[in-house]
Amino acid sequence: MKKITRKKHLEMRLQNIPSHPKPKVGLEQYTTPSIIASDLIWNAFGLGDIEGKDVLDLGCGTGVFAIGSALMGAHSSIGVDIDGDSIDLAIDVSGKLKLDNVDFIVSDICDFNNGSNVDTVFQNPPFGSQKKADKGQDLKFVKKAIELGPDVLYSFHMASTEDFLIKFYEDNALEISHIFRYDFPIPKIYDFHSRENQNVSVIVLRAEL
Score class of each variant (00 low, 15 high):
Gly115Trp: 04
Lys3Asn: 06
Pro21Met: 10
Arg13Leu: 12
Leu14Ser: 12
Arg206Gly: 00
Ala70Lys: 05
Asp54Gly: 02
Ile41Lys: 09
Lys53Met: 11
Pro125Cys: 08
Ile4Cys: 10
Leu205Trp: 03
Arg195Thr: 09
Ser34Val: 01
Ile82Trp: 01
Ile189Trp: 02
Asp163Lys: 14
Gln29His: 11
Gly61Leu: 08
Thr161Lys: 14
Lys96Gln: 14
Glu208Ala: 00
Asn114Ala: 14
Asp103Gln: 13
Ala133His: 09
Glu196Trp: 11
His75Pro: 00
Phe127Gly: 07
Phe180Gly: 00
Ser69Lys: 03
Phe127Met: 08
Ile91Glu: 14
Gly95Ile: 11
Phe164Ala: 13
Glu170Val: 02
Gly61Asn: 08
Phe104Leu: 10
Ile176Ser: 01
Asn199Cys: 03
Lys167Cys: 05
Ser38Leu: 08
Glu175Lys: 13
Gly95Lys: 14
Pro23Gly: 03
Val106Trp: 00
Ile179Phe: 01
Gln15Ala: 10
Gly46His: 03
Gln137Ser: 07
Arg195Glu: 12
Ile189Lys: 02
Ser116Arg: 15
Ala159Gln: 11
Thr161Met: 10
Ala66Gln: 02
Gln130Ala: 09
Ile109Gly: 04
Gly59Arg: 06
Asp151Trp: 01
Val106Gly: 03
Gly61Ser: 08
Lys143Val: 06
Asn124Asp: 14
Gly52Leu: 06
Leu58His: 04
Lys24His: 10
